[in-house]
Amino acid sequence: MNSGVVLVTGASKGLGRGIARAFGSKGFTVYITGRSQAELTAAAAEVTELGGRGIAHVCDHENDSAVEQLFNEIRSNSGRLDILVNNAAAVHAQDLSKPGAYWQKPLHLVDMINVGLRSNYVAAYHATPLLIETGGSLMVHISFYGAVSYFHGPAYGAAKAGTDKMNFDMACDLAESDVASVALWPGLILSDELKNLPEEHLTEELKARLMHFESPEFTGQIIERLWRDPERLNYSGSAHVCAELAQRYGIADSDGKQPVSYREVWGAPENRFIKPKTFV
């Protein structure tokens, strides 16, 4: 199986780490970024153990110069980039889930617009020339249902809605290239942290809920299959629910279950942007 080079930002833990593992199992060279050297080293080792080549790169995605250097190193060391997965985000999970309105929560929740939306733009800015040179490439921006429904408040919603619109506009600019740009909406993720919760923290209700969560590797499988899809350019500019793409591709989660779409509960990424025929 011919495999390529992928960069997964924010892959030291959570969804990004699982996506990196999925690509490792397919034999990819996987660059992973984050701010913790220890976590990145462990994540890269997992990729390598699964048959890929994990490369850890400490990178603060608030630092534009550091991001530029990251892509310079990818170009120098690998000479190509097949897939960019924009996953890095400044998610202050405990504060996000607290009750209260936005002005009653810590102001740092707005950081997600910087690292999560702006950082996606900066990574895409530096990645795109290399993606175009490589050809047959894919850029994925991790989004969520919060783009169209209330979820964790306005900072979170603005970051996700902005991600979907940014993706659409990037696809317009990429229309004459062989690079697809897609926003993906995973479901609720059974991260390593959740899987490793002490038994005493797991109520029966929580156990029942976690059974329906998606593994982080599931999203990685979908991205890899989308990259191989000869019709992938038809998806460019749109946002898609991972569970729905999985059904289309015949992909089940690692435990054999078919994760569900939450479009009836939280909304759906319908085509709500317009490609103008002319510019005024």
Rank of each mutant, 00 (worst) to 15 (best):
P129T: 05
Y150H: 12
V30E: 03
A88M: 01
P276S: 05
R35C: 07
I83T: 13
M1R: 05
K257R: 09
E231D: 15
M112E: 13
Q221S: 06
M139V: 14
F71I: 05
L226W: 00
F273G: 02
N2D: 14
V85N: 02
H92Y: 15
F151K: 08
S261T: 10
D253V: 00
T203K: 07
N196R: 15
L188H: 14
L131E: 02
H61M: 08
E176N: 13
F151Y: 13
D173Y: 11
D64S: 13
A208W: 04
D82I: 06
L15D: 05
A42R: 12
K207P: 04
A183H: 10
T203F: 08
K98N: 05
P259T: 05
I223D: 00
T29E: 06
L131S: 01
V8M: 06
K160W: 10
S78Y: 10
G79D: 06
V179S: 00
D64R: 10
G51L: 04
Y235H: 12
H212K: 13
D192Y: 11
I142K: 10
E68W: 08
S177L: 09
A93S: 11
P259K: 01
G24M: 03
I74N: 08
T128I: 14
G10Q: 02
L210W: 07
A124L: 07
E224I: 08
S143C: 08
S238P: 07
G34M: 09
H61F: 04
S236M: 11
P216Y: 01
S149N: 03
M170N: 09
C242R: 07
G24E: 04
S65F: 14
A44R: 07
G52E: 02
Y150D: 15
E49D: 10
I32C: 12
A101D: 14
L233R: 15
G27V: 00
E264R: 14
N87C: 04
V241Y: 08
S149G: 04
H108K: 12
S181R: 04
I83D: 05
G51K: 05
S76M: 14
Q104L: 06
N87D: 01
M112N: 15
P276M: 11
I32Y: 08
S12D: 05
T33L: 06
K105F: 08
A101E: 15
S76V: 09
E231P: 13
H212T: 15
N72Q: 13
A161E: 06
D111T: 07
S25F: 00
V260P: 09
R272D: 13
L50R: 10
V8S: 02
N63Q: 12
V5P: 03
A158W: 09
S12V: 04
S25W: 00
E200V: 11
A171H: 11
G54A: 02
R35H: 02
V85E: 03
M112D: 12
G220S: 04
R272S: 15
A56D: 00
E231G: 14
A11F: 00
A183M: 02
L109D: 09
G54V: 01
G267M: 05
G153H: 09
S65H: 12
I55Y: 03
Q94C: 10
S254Q: 09
H240I: 08
D229R: 09
E204C: 05
P99R: 01
S215E: 03
